[in-house]
Design a protein around this nucleic acid. Structure first.
Length: 697
RNA sequence: CGCGAGAUAGAGCAGCGGUAGCUCGUCGGGCUCAUAACCCGAAGGUCACAGGUUCGAUCCCUGUUCUCGCUACCA
């Protein structure tokens, strides 16, 4: 397929926090490198990005901070925009999904699918806060965790013990908005029948993209398709988002994963009146740069939506990266374990390219990678400065010392194999970098550029012009060799600027200034040429391109990470929870009367059977002999005990606890456990064997 | 649990049937125009583990372990 234009998108950053270097390495930097390269090739390309500003987490953050959701997105949209600009992420437009154009575009998209009769309407029961008059997402429901007793567990997960929950499992559930008890209410939603596009997707991806897409992306898609697709609700009950454009849809908005990818289209509309060329013409190559958490949305759901709507091109490739860890640990925004881009720019002014270099050289292209400040320092000092910066500096210094500060001539009569080999290397480098970039292998492409600089260092060494200059009796002859050597070094330098430009645009610009050439020299077609600098052309004085990163700087950054983590952790403990950090033992509960205690029917029982609950990491299904009956009890202890080890054990059971369904199994009671500070669970059992069913008082 | 991706020298990666290579780091030597590179030499790997196929496996097959992701209204 021959393409006449390219459309590149990078995942829309979610506007509920700043961006960190993991975001950068995951998709924004690769997208930027790719785009800059294509622009240098003079191809027609648009690079689209913007803030994703809808969804539940934004409303929660607004609530916590006591401001409106619009305030939240305004704040972070500005920070993200500045971070990208500061790092040289050169999108053609950075838009936002709260714009009117986006509202219209996504509503029209929805309306088209609706009018074509594609949606299935379904009614279901959902939790509702009668006081605030809104439906509650799982995340909005707070209650006591049935597993660990944390009183502030969310309706989807207990953050303390990590157990996955559904709102039904919470003890004494309450609304996060009003503390009211949630009630169930019927609500209607529109479902997109993904299943109807299964055949189309299978043919398009499983057969069509087999050897084209990255293994992680392809494998993920295939896995989804093999396990069968299901209709997916494309609307939500909320007052924050794009309103569903139907008369009977008051209080309903588009699901963020329906509206966000359409944001790419709306942003293109804002950018250019010719937007439809990029989205609808078959000779457009559409590429989505994303992180691995986005694969299904960009490879399955969005293409199915586009196909259903009709008239749009589908992505040619989705080169998703894996994740970047920081100092051996996963990035965590809630624990503030991250290197924030806006802070990097403040801490390392004019060092954007140092970070761009390291993030590209160590990009998580095939597997999760680790960013450490030591590695950052090593790569900047030993590769970027010592190989590339040093070569550039050597060429400039020698040219000023031995060639009067002007570009010397290339004398054909003394041109030797060393010269010819270097010229070949320059030409070959262009092809290698090009091939790697077209295949989204950015690490390899950058390594090729550095390797060319390395060859330059070697060439300089092999010719040793400083030695040639030391023999006055051979002045004329030697000066010719010196001229050739430095001529080619400078031409190589110009080539490096071109090849480096997509990766390190700030540096490429500096190099141009020092060589006193216009930016047009950076056009890709100039790569491989050795006549970029005119003979006798005077160049500026040597000046270092990169500075070394000092030990104290990286130590300070590591300390900063640790401080942030400590701060975030202590805040967390102080704020919503009542227990203190100093005492890892759970806080004593309030005084109760004997009557309160007497309400609990505690009995001894013996576990007669235990098995793992399917599709649940933490749950065991137990059968407990209570003397007069055998109870089924589901208990969240699978991480601590193997089923076979606990059969025959006598335990204490809360016998009159209201039945509760967990993973579809009704649990009738609860096993008492003591929990150590380290989280270890210990059965609370009679010391001697009691009769099953006997009361515990 | 299931599915997907990954596991190769201290770090980052290549190799993907014929007794392990590259970049950086470490140690010793040479050279010196330079933020020092370049050259020579050295140390460092039972290619996650266990089986199997094969004349031969890092590479193919089976099983296991570990990491990450998906499986939830977590973007």
């Amino acid at each position: 397929m021959n393409y006449n234009r390219l459309l590149v998108t990078a995942a829309l950053p979610y506007a509920n926090g700043p961006v960190h270097i993991g975001h950068l390495a995951g998709c924004y930097l690769p997208a930027d490198i790719y785009t800059r390269y294509q622009r240098a090739q003079k191809r027609d390309i648009k690079f689209i990005c913007g803030s994703d500003e809808h969804g539940v987490p934004i409303t929660i953050r607004a609530m916590r901070e006591g401001i409106t959701p619009q305030d939240v997105v305004d704040k972070y949209n500005a920070i993200i925009r500045d971070s990208f600009a500061g790092m040289g992420i050169s999108c053609d437009i950075y838009s936002r999904t709260s714009n009117p154009t986006h509202r219209e575009t996504s509503q029209a998209f929805f309306k088209k699918l609706y009018d074509d009769g594609l949606f299935e309407e379904r009614e279901s029961e959902q939790y509702y806060d009668a006081e605030k008059d809104v439906f509650l997402a799982d995340r909005y429901i707070i209650g006591t965790c049935p597993n660990c007793g944390n009183p502030n567990a969310y309706g989807d997960q207990c953050e303390k013990c990590g157990t996955s929950l559904s709102p039904e499992q919470l003890i004494e559930p309450r609304s996060a908005l009003s503390n009211a008890k949630p009630v169930k209410r019927m609500t209607k939603h529109w479902y997109f029948p993904l299943n109807k596009y299964e055949d189309f997707l299978k043919e398009w991806i499983v057969e069509g993209k087999k050897d084209e897409w990255k293994a992680n992306v392809y494998g993920q898609c295939k896995s989804w398709l093999d396990s069968g697709l299901h209709p997916r609700a494309m609307t939500r009950d909320s007052n924050w988002g794009v309103p569903v454009p139907l008369p009977d849809a008051k209080g309903k908005v588009l699901y963020v994963w329906f509206d966000a990818p359409i944001g790419y289209i709306s942003a293109t509309k804002e950018l250019t009146p010719q937007w439809a060329d990029y989205w609808c013409k078959e000779d457009t190559k559409l590429v989505h740069f994303i992180g691995k958490d986005n694969i299904v949305f960009h490879c399955i759901i969005f293409p199915a939506m586009l196909k259903a709507h009709g008239g749009y091109v589908l992505p040619d490739n989705v080169p998703a990266n894996e994740f970047l860890n920081i100092e051996g640990e996963k990035v965590s925004t809630s624990r503030n374990w991250a290197v924030w881009v806006d802070e990097y720019i403040k801490d390392f002014p004019d060092q954007q390219d140092a970070l761009r270099y390291v993030l590209c050289a160590n990009a998580p292209e095939n597997k999760d990678n680790d960013f450490t400040w030591k590695d950052f320092q090593d790569r900047v000092n030993n590769e970027l400065s010592a190989v590339l910066g040093n070569f550039e500096n050597r060429a400039f210094v020698l040219m000023h010392k031995l060639c009067k500060g002007r570009v010397p001539a290339l004398h054909a009569d003394v041109q030797n194999e060393l010269d010819n080999a270097l010229i070949e290397d320059i030409k070959a480098a262009k092809t290698k970098v090009e091939t790697a970039l077209e295949a989204y292998r950015f690490r390899e492409a950058l390594a090729e550029v550095i390797d060319l600089a390395r060859k330059g260092n070697k060439y300089l060494q092999d010719n040793a012009p400083w030695t040639l200059a030391k023999t006055p009796e051979l002045q004329v002859e030697n000066q010719k060799r010196i001229d050739n050597c430095l001529h080619l070094c400078l031409q190589l330098n110009a080539n490096l600027a071109i090849l480096l430009n997509p990766f390190l645009p700030f540096t490429a610009n500096k190099m141009c200034k020092k060589m006193k050439v216009v930016e047009r020299m950076l056009e890709w077609e100039n790569a491989g040429r050795i006549d970029l600098l005119k003979v006798n052309y005077p160049l500026l004085a040597p000046e270092l391109l990169f500075r070394k990163i000092e030990d104290t700087e990286v130590e300070a950054q590591v300390q900063k990470l640790k401080d942030n983590l400590a701060k975030a952790t202590s805040q967390k403990v102080e704020a919503p929870k009542t227990e203190t950090q100093a005492a890892p033992v759970a806080e004593a509960k309030g005084v109760i009367t004997y009557d309160d205690f007497a309400k609990i029917d505690l009995r001894a029982g013996t576990i007669t059977k235990a098995e793992k609950v399917e599709k649940a990491d933490k749950l065991l299904k137990l059968e407990v002999d209570m003397g007069t009956e055998v109870r089924t009890i589901v208990s969240g202890i699978a991480m601590h005990f193997a089923p076979e080890d606990i059969v025959g054990k006598q335990v204490t059971v809360v016998a009159n606890l209201a039945p509760r369904k967990m993973r579809g199994i009704e649990s009738n009671g609860m096993i008492l456990m003591a929990q150590n500070a380290d989280g270890k669970l210990i059965f609370v059992s009679p010391l001697e064997t009691a009769d099953n069913g006997s009361e515990v008082k």
